[in-house]
Write a protein that binds this DNA or RNA. Structure first.
Lengths: 199, 199
DNA sequence: TTCTTGTCACCTAGGTGTTAATAT
DNA sequence: ATATTAACACCTAGGTGACAAGAA
């Protein structure tokens, strides 16, 4: 059994239509994909890996007037079957279960030549179990399209703090009209990012 | 077979009498202990670990007038048998050998209550091979005693760049008397730190 | 046009020796 | 006296979106 961490934040993005930047050098995902794992055999070794499933083979473009994604042709040839092994692999079940497993080093790239930490598919014949979290679905972009996604990223990613025009700590004391939509998405009870989990 | 990396730098420190700061929170070693490994079985799994051997059970204090260490009593009770497993352990021989193995995350502490990434001794009964590098011998201190050690740390550790009063790149162009001894210790051919090995 | 890339200021995160204050 | 601690300015290292320039 696997439980997605930061589910509330993922849901918030998902409601707007999550976008993830891809670059040639590789860009981290935000929110970070991290999970709690239950029910492994504590003494057995496990490999943990992550890959990405194309939802369809279409290409989309964002229509700003209607704030929606429109089909705009066929997708690029599918990404070669690459998987990202969690760097702690292999490890005992007990190790995986005793703390949150984070894929924060994982980077998305549109450079087909660069592996970026991805390995070619192996172990395909072995027993494995797959978990899909629909709320982590995203559209890969080279620049953000939906401005509300940009604002939610700025509001919730600590590394983008430089672009905030309103300190969440100061709200509602410093309440200004322009901050309201961001703040409503940044309710502290739903977003524990500011105090990241140990290790 | 194991080969110490940055041996020239280690030798330079060792000639002066290397000192390493220990703190309650833990302090990295500098130079970093890193090695190249040869002759493992590529397919076998290996644990790699590091520990510290007290050279004697004496306590020392530094005599500034003679620039030497004088015996000043008996050592504290020996550190409990703690070892530091390399975080990549276990891994195949091929993996260990294909790049430099670095213990850069290792931290020294005088806090007996804090493990600081150290594990209690295990595998004592299993087959293992030990390598000692005499040139990495050091004196644990809470504050640097030998000023020449301080200057060599400042000259060679990138994180201490803020304390340099002379940019190695500008020498001998900007040659000033006060910089000469530091620069002679920082010959670029003997200190590749400025361009760290990939990954 | 539309999409992609490279550079930038601004952050987070954490490793330095210094210094002054505190402990022994 | 001497040894240790804690706060600090100054770094390295690298993750952000904005923006201007370039490519398709």
């Amino acid at each position: 059994n696997v439980q997605l961490e930061m589910k509330a934040l993922w849901d918030e993005f998902n409601m707007l239509g999550t976008e993830m930047i891809v670059t040639k050098a590789g860009r981290r995902m935000f929110p970070t994909f991290q999970v709690k794992i239950f029910g492994m055999d504590p003494m057995s070794d496990y490999m943990l890996l992550m890959d990405f499933l194309p939802v369809d083979d279409k290409r989309y473009r964002y229509a700003f007037h209607s704030s929606s994604w429109l089909v705009a042709g066929k997708a690029d040839p599918a990404t070669p079957g690459r998987v990202h092994y969690h760097p702690d692999s292999p490890a005992k079940g007990a190790q995986w279960m005793k703390q949150i497993v984070s894929f924060d080093k994982l980077k998305l790239t549109n450079n087909l030549l660069d592996d970026n930490g991805h390995d070619s598919e192996k172990y395909a014949e072995e027993n494995y179990k797959t978990f899909v979290f629909e709320e982590t679905r995203f559209t890969a972009v080279t620049a953000y399209q939906n401005h509300r996604i940009t604002q939610l990223k700025i509001a919730s990613n600590p590394f983008a703090k430089g672009f905030r025009d309103c300190d969440p700590e100061d709200w509602p004391r410093n309440h200004r009209p322009g901050c309201l939509p961001i703040m409503s998405a940044f309710a502290r009870t739903r977003n524990p990012m500011s105090s990241p989990p140990p290790q």
